[in-house]
Design a protein around this nucleic acid. Structure first.
Lengths: 165, 165
DNA sequence: GAGGTATCCGACTAAATTACTTGGTTATTT
DNA sequence: AAATAACCAAGTAATTTAGTCGGATACCTC
């Protein structure tokens, strides 16, 4: 699990699709303008998103991309993994280049962590991300109205929900 | 919050320290050998870890580094942030280069996600990471003994614990 | 105090990745 | 036929990562 600006671009673009793609496909040119990402770079990213069946395309005038599944069925880990495909795991995964004892242990610990992050991001769908905003603003309104309750608890609640706890 | 091999190196090195540094400081040369990371690269990483007061150094023969706090008090987010210091937030944070409406919204959504990841990693201490291994092997032994219960629940349990739920 | 050890420090470099550019083609609509 | 927008490949600039080199400084041991 890697988390770079590349993944951010992909998630941002997918969020744009989720927010604006309710009626008909959205062209990359539109996303490019709104999110300030170069068109050709978007093309490269969407080629991978398409291969991973996260988006579907419509060619020709009025065409573009749409999410290929319900917003609830697409999670952040899917998007980031799709776009990072190719380069990973230079560690001693399966290979015999790992000495015995301690080295393998720490590598294993890292892998555990990496898996935890993946599990965490798998629990956050596009729907959850966009809805959460609503949850938050509702909460902010409630604070203003009641003068009670900070949003730390809401944060925990959201995390719990994201993890399906 | 960025998550690259650089952060992996840092976490791995810190895990090595946590596991091997119980009696006296550990030299970077030792970590370099065990974890197969170049000495000079480790020096660069530890310069940042030291500035962020995650490790303390002892110079001269028999010297090296030790964790500057209890294992429970050092979390993964601390380590990764320390080592990534400098380059970040090319987005429209605070600046006026963001158009109105949709663009700000998706950027905001990304920031929310980024914050969630940070919160998540803040909940995972070096102690938790190393202990978890013990938890897992205990669980594996239990499975072998009883033939019952897969480790999905344990995974959830660990996540819940990491999040302080 | 001489020699060895290990942190500290800065500048430079190779390799890899990222973000973008260019110049097309193909499919589809009007 | 013309315009639109996905598709595709190759190349490039910029950035980041990982490592090298050549030292200086602090500290311990003999």
């Amino acid at each position: 699990m890697k988390l770079t600006t590349r993944g951010r671009y992909a998630v941002t673009a997918m969020l744009d699709l989720a927010l604006n793609g309710n009626q008909g496909p959205i062209s990359l040119a539109a996303i490019s303008q709104r999110q300030d990402i170069s068109l050709s770079y978007l093309e490269q990213l969407f080629a991978k998103l398409r291969k991973n069946e996260l988006v579907a395309s419509v060619r020709g005038p009025g065409g573009g991309y749409r999410l290929s599944r319900a917003h609830e069925q697409i999670n952040v880990a899917d998007i980031i993994s799709a776009v990072n495909e190719s380069t990973d795991s230079t560690s001693c995964q399966g290979k015999g280049d790992c000495q015995k004892g301690d080295p393998c242990l720490t590598h294993q610990l890292w892998d555990d962590l990496s898996e935890q992050i993946h599990t965490f991001l798998s629990g956050i769908s596009l729907a959850a991300l966009t809805e959460q905003r609503a949850v938050k603003s509702v909460n902010e309104r409630q604070i203003k109205l009641s003068g009670e309750r900070d949003d730390v608890n809401v944060e925990a609640l959201i995390n719990a929900k994201a993890l399906n706890l």
